[in-house]
């Protein structure tokens, strides 16, 4: 399953790279693969890179939001990075609720954000 799904591990973090035009079945398969992997490796963070998505419709947005919720239930934190400007304004106009989703401009900032969020959830202060 993993070889069909764009997942990478970097320390305690799983990096998910979404790109191209994804059909619904692929999106749902990725969702299952990520939750399985988080549980299996006891990951602390999930970084979802969507910079390669030119379109995010309400279905994909909903799956991403759902995935963030599942990852939280599995005890990890997650962040979405690289939402394109046109995609961002489209999601807002479309009215997809993304309030609980944390975002960052790029992978580097996303990794920093994941670290801060992990520290917050564990009560650790620098």
């Amino acid at each position: 399953m993993l070889e069909q799904v764009p997942l990478q591990r970097l320390g305690h973090t799983i990096i998910v790279t979404l790109q191209g035009d994804l059909d619904d079945a692929t999106v749902e398969r990725i969702e299952r693969a990520v939750t399985d992997e988080v549980a299996k490796v006891r990951a602390r963070g999930v970084l979802i890179d969507v910079s390669g998505l030119a379109v995010v419709d309400s279905f994909v947005a909903r799956v991403i939001a759902r995935l963030v919720g599942m990852v939280a239930l599995l005890g990890a934190v997650s962040t979405i990075v690289g939402i394109q400007p046109a995609v961002a304004i489209t999601l807002v106009e479309l009215g997809v609720p993304m309030d609980h989703v944390h975002t960052a401009l790029n992978a580097e900032q996303g990794m920093a954000r994941l670290r801060r969020m992990w520290d917050d959830t564990t009560g650790y202060r620098r």
């Binding site: 979405i80 995609v87 961002a88 304004i89 975002t103 401009l105 790029n106």
Partner: peptide, 11 residues
């Protein structure tokens, strides 16, 4: 809406 779109981008 502009503020929310910027936030989605991570800003």
């Amino acid at each position: 809406k502009t503020v929310e779109a910027a936030r989605l981008m991570g800003t």
